[in-house]
Simulated assay, not measured.
Amino acid sequence: MNKISAGDVLPELTVTLRREDLVRYAGASGDFNPIHWSDRMAAALGLPGVIAHGMLTMASAVRVVTDWLDDPADLVEYGVRFTKPVVVPDDDAGAEVVFSATAAKVADGLAEFDITALFAGEKVLGRARAVVRVP
């Protein structure tokens, strides 16, 4: 891990979510809600299509910070608000989500990062913030 100062920006992370990722996540999490695999059910509920699990999006987002850390166990706090869904098409391209993180505050051995998650140019997470231990 390198030295970090308030205002520093970590390298962007781009994650592509495909339908098979949703199936794997459903198996791991036990969340088999049909909005995560059935276009028909998603449409019946007024969604624009099958959507990624919110917790999968959240977990993907924090990687922009944990990939930078020497030890992911240095993550001490993390939270987000879900603002828009990530719609995952039934094709090979999937849905590309771009994550970035900026150090908002560094003090007393902790760094607070504001995380941005963009899908199709729109923020899909609000108030995404990670706090990590730093040297």
Rank of each mutant, 00 (worst) to 15 (best):
68 W>I: 04
44 A>R: 09
126 G>S: 13
76 V>P: 03
108 D>L: 15
62 V>C: 00
45 L>R: 12
120 A>R: 14
97 V>M: 06
108 D>R: 15
88 V>A: 10
108 D>V: 13
50 V>K: 07
87 V>E: 08
43 A>R: 15
41 M>N: 00
65 V>T: 10
123 K>Q: 08
106 V>E: 09
112 E>N: 13
109 G>H: 02
51 I>M: 07
82 F>D: 06
127 R>N: 15
64 V>E: 08
128 A>M: 07
89 P>N: 13
65 V>I: 12
48 P>K: 13
120 A>G: 08
41 M>Y: 11
61 A>E: 00
29 S>R: 08
83 T>F: 01
33 N>D: 12
60 S>V: 01
98 V>G: 02
68 W>K: 05
36 H>N: 08
55 M>F: 11
98 V>L: 10
70 D>Y: 02
49 G>T: 06
110 L>W: 06
110 L>T: 13
114 D>R: 14
41 M>S: 00
93 A>H: 13
122 E>V: 00
116 T>I: 03
122 E>N: 08
86 V>F: 05
91 D>Q: 08
123 K>C: 02
43 A>C: 05
93 A>E: 15
48 P>V: 05
111 A>F: 11
98 V>E: 04
113 F>K: 04
66 T>S: 14
116 T>Q: 01
126 G>T: 09
89 P>S: 10
75 L>V: 00
117 A>Y: 01
109 G>M: 03
89 P>M: 07
51 I>V: 15
60 S>E: 03
45 L>W: 02
45 L>F: 10
90 D>E: 15
58 M>Y: 03
66 T>C: 12
96 E>S: 14
109 G>A: 05
101 A>V: 01
114 D>W: 00
69 L>W: 11
44 A>M: 01
75 L>I: 02
51 I>K: 03
80 V>T: 14
62 V>Q: 07
65 V>E: 10
92 D>V: 09
63 R>W: 10
88 V>T: 08
43 A>Y: 02
88 V>F: 11
43 A>N: 08
125 L>M: 03
123 K>W: 00
91 D>T: 13
66 T>R: 11
46 G>E: 08
55 M>Q: 13
55 M>N: 05
84 K>I: 05
85 P>D: 04
29 S>G: 07
128 A>Q: 05
122 E>W: 00
85 P>N: 08
85 P>C: 08
42 A>W: 12
88 V>P: 13
105 K>P: 03
74 D>H: 15
39 D>F: 03
114 D>P: 01
97 V>H: 04
102 T>L: 09
62 V>I: 07
93 A>F: 05
85 P>M: 12
71 D>N: 15
29 S>I: 07
124 V>M: 05
70 D>T: 09
122 E>S: 09
106 V>Y: 07
115 I>M: 04
29 S>E: 04
113 F>I: 04
73 A>F: 06
31 D>Q: 14
